[in-house]
């Protein structure tokens, strides 16, 4: 303290001068004349020039802070971009589904896939809609890209659908271009097979396969897939038609269940005819 006071004493003339000059400048600033206005203007210009000149000198601490803030912002924006991308994809899916629902002549109930079993011979999916939503066994399941399968079991709030990639699945189908009929069944792996197609029928790779009006379960003209390969084995009357399904079962997230019941009269008479045989 003594040393500090001694130091102050050493420079007391300068300290007093500074103090008096400051008071004088404060008094000067109280005036409102041309001189003071000009000095203020010059001072503002000088301060601006100095700030501008000093701005090019990088402030390490500030840069570090700014860097941290930008990094945090980058993380936040990346998260947001990811969420937006997800929302966009979901939006596109929903649009397609909404479009399907609008153009469909059937009554559809939307459901989310909450479980999948794609490794066994009886591949199924679990849906979050059940009997309370009007879901019953044998109702067809479709997506915006085509036929998925049919409902095989239901509870109040859930249902299980058999996929086309299931060894028990069968559906009447036809080639859209030539109206050639057949039975679609799982061919193992990712492909389906259109069976009972005579060697004389006109079927080409790339043909679209759709559900047939002969089916009492599936509505007509629902896309099943595209013919990808045709083989003709010697000694057989039929062609081996391989069909690639239009639905990607691995990425299935939302589906529709066709809740319009098949014509009961037709079902009844078909069952009666089957019994008399």
């Amino acid at each position: 303290m003594h040393r500090f006071l001694g130091l102050l004493g050493l420079f007391k003339e300068y300290l007093v001068l500074t103090f008096l000059i400051v008071i004088s400048l404060v008094l000067l600033s109280l005036n409102d004349n041309n001189q003071v206005r000009a000095i203020r203007s010059t001072a503002v210009g000088f301060v601006g020039f100095m700030q501008n000149a000093l701005a090019i000198i990088p402030n390490v601490v500030e840069l570090k802070k700014e860097n941290e803030v930008l990094r945090q912002l980058n993380v936040n924006l990346s998260n947001e971009v990811s969420l937006l991308r997800e929302a966009r994809l979901e939006n596109l899916r929903m649009r397609e589904m909404a479009g399907l629902k609008e153009h469909s002549t059937f009554k559809l109930t939307a459901g989310n896939v909450i479980g999948k079993s794609l490794l066994l011979l009886r591949n199924t999916i679990t849906l979050d809609i059940g009997e309370r939503d009007g879901i019953k066994a044998d109702m067809p399941v479709i997506s915006e890209t085509g036929l998925v399968g049919k409902v095989i079991a239901t509870s109040d709030h859930y249902s299980i659908a058999q996929l086309m990639q299931n060894k028990d699945f069968r559906a009447s189908a036809k080639i859209q271009r030539t109206r050639v009929d057949g039975i679609i069944a799982w061919g193992g792996g990712d492909v389906l097979r259109l069976k009972n197609v005579s060697k004389t029928e006109d079927v080409r790779p790339g043909d679209i396969v759709i559900t047939s009006e002969y089916s009492s379960v599936f509505p007509r003209e629902i896309k099943i897939g595209l013919v990808s390969k045709i083989e003709e084995k010697p000694g057989s009357l039929f062609k081996e038609v391989e069909v690639t399904p239009s639905v990607d079962f691995a990425s299935l997230e939302q589906v529709f269940v066709v809740t319009s019941a098949p014509d009961p009269e037709r079902t009844e008479i078909e069952k009666k005819a089957a019994r008399t045989k």
Binding site: V26, L27, L28
Partner: peptide, 10 residues
């Protein structure tokens, strides 16, 4: 001009 002479005479 309040302060001007004060400054200059200081």
């Amino acid at each position: 001009f309040l302060g001007l002479s004060a400054l200059s005479k200081t």
